[in-house]
């Protein structure tokens, strides 16, 4: 029960952060930061695939309602949720995953996180931009947007976890 409340608070917090802060950033080259994808990564290892997809879809749809993108975020978030189990299987450590762990920076380490997050976000943004811009822009332009957006998003979701981890440790003490 406590974990469910915790994840609901995460959900609301990430939607607020995305719509109030990251959607309003105007970055050079017009690339974007999909900070809310952090939620899809940090759901526990034992989350059923179906539930994962439904939650990701709901999250994307909420973001869409706030940013006038009509289903684009929902579609991309759903794709990310669908490849997450496969991604985790690819990078499974030799000893396997501990079911009590969560796929976060503090529990899985920087190396694992960079690999998994980068590929996941790259797939997310490829889907997002190809779908969003395919009718009006060239390949080179879409490619550069995918690349820059992915790099900045991965950097930010890792940074956010570093900040949160520190806070958690202080609370324990």
């Amino acid at each position: 029960m406590r974990t469910i409340v915790k994840y609901i608070l995460w959900f609301v917090g990430l939607v607020a952060a995305q719509t109030f802060v990251f959607d309003n950033l105007v970055l050079p080259g017009g690339f974007t930061i999909a900070f809310y994808t952090l939620f899809i990564f940090v759901l526990p290892f034992n989350t059923p695939n179906n539930l994962l997809m439904i939650v990701a879809f709901a999250l994307g749809l909420t973001i869409d309602a706030f940013s006038d993108t009509y289903g684009l975020n929902a579609s991309a978030a759903l794709t990310l949720a669908a490849i997450r189990p496969r991604l985790f299987r690819w990078f499974e450590p030799a000893v396997g995953y501990n079911e009590t762990q969560t796929p976060s920076l503090s529990q899985m380490g920087l190396n694992w996180c960079i690999k998994v997050y980068s590929i996941g976000i790259l797939v997310f943004y490829s889907w997002y931009y190809v779908l969003g811009f395919m009718r009006i822009s060239g390949l080179w332009f879409i490619g550069s947007k995918i690349l820059y957006s992915s790099i900045s998003t991965v950097a930010l979701i890792l940074l956010a976890q570093v900040l949160f981890r520190r806070k958690a440790k202080q609370n324990e003490l």
Binding site: N50, M53, I54, F57, G60, L61, D64, A65, F66, S67, D68, T69, Y70, G71, L72, A74, S75, L78, T79, A82, L131
Partner: peptide, 28 residues
């Protein structure tokens, strides 16, 4: 099946919103 269903719904919303603004589900 769940993936296809949800994806179909999302893409339907996205592409129809470009064509007929009257059936948009939610916006700002």
């Amino acid at each position: 099946l769940i993936f296809v269903l949800l994806q179909g719904f999302a893409l339907y919303l996205y592409f129809t919103s470009q064509l007929y603004p009257s059936i948009q589900f939610a916006n700002s």
